[in-house]
Design a protein around this nucleic acid. Structure first.
Ligand code: FES
Ligand code: FES
Lengths: 148, 148
DNA sequence: GGAAATGGGACTGGTTTGGTCCTATTTAAG
DNA sequence: CTTAAATAGGACCAAACCAGTCCCATTTCC
């Protein structure tokens, strides 16, 4: 289905929620509660995002996570790469030789690169903020909490 | 890895090989031999391509497959859709509601659409011919055969 | 010192996918 | 008319992959 990891989807949801209070320090359990997603999953997502440098994690009691840059500056590619790895559409990786067994017979050898860059370019232009529907209103957020 | 099905890769290889003799009727075993790919796999790929209308299959002895249109007119999306299904990057399909359990809590709901169209547009512009490295020279083809 | 949080990774069940094989159907050749 | 060669279609199985959970170490505030 050419689908990306479900965790990527979750990540966007979590980031969107964080974007509503961009400066605040928010804990994983807290965010789980506010997004309605299961807590262990949110924790995992945040860990990965922290590794990628998209969010910044502060340890200790009263610790939590914080966006390391404003939502509109977070490119979608950053998130995707964090969870799905480098954006390369095929098994025959970009310049890499030696990995494909039928390489010496293959007319396509390496030719996927233009495709990959085309997709990277397309995704590069999209920020997470654009996916977030930038900020549900606070009222709407309250409604969601109530719905739980 | 955001990778597409390996069969898609094979398909492009096979199509590229067919493009070298675009009008000729070529059998699955023959193409398998010429591409160096295992025969059952090539057969499967061709069946799928036939269903998608990319190639045309003729039955019976002396049957075979033929491109249903010239290689440069075959868009990459056609091939991808044939093997990987519709190009939609997330589990939450385009307009479809009701499939996602946390939809009522989800700030992203449906917002992936722009991403999907961005990717579709990018892929739409690429033809299989562009990936094929359009035609190894006949000499090169002979070399390959000899190399087997 | 204890509680609360992140950091990092191991483990596992479920799903998906690739690859193979089998059978029916069609058509040309002998 | 029989046989052979090919496509059409689908069933099946093993392997790879992924999500989800859990566990333990580390850090920091109270
Ligand atoms: S299939 Fe691997 S190089 Fe072409
Ligand atoms: S995660 Fe499904 S609608 Fe957002």
């Amino acid at each position: 289905m050419l689908r990306l990891s479900r965790l990527t989807d979750y990540a966007v949801v979590v980031l969107a929620r964080m974007g509503e209070e961009a400066t605040a320090l928010q804990s994983a359990p807290g965010l789980a509660h506010r997004t309605g997603l299961p807590e262990p999953t949110v924790a995992k997502v945040l860990k990965t995002l922290a590794q990628a440098g998209v969010v910044e994690g502060l340890r200790g009691a009263r610790g939590g996570y914080r966006l390391s840059k404003p939502l509109p500056e977070i490119k979608l590619t950053e998130v995707i790469v964090a969870f799905d790895g480098p954006i390369a559409l095929t098994a025959c990786v970009d310049g890499g030789s030696g990995l494909c067994e039928s390489e010496h017979l293959c007319p396509v050898r390496g030719r996927w690169d233009p495709v990959n860059t085309a997709i990277r370019d397309a995704l590069e232009k999209i920020s997470v903020a654009e996916l977030a529907g930038h900020a549900l209103s606070p009222a709407e957020a309250d409604f969601r909490l109530a719905a739980e």
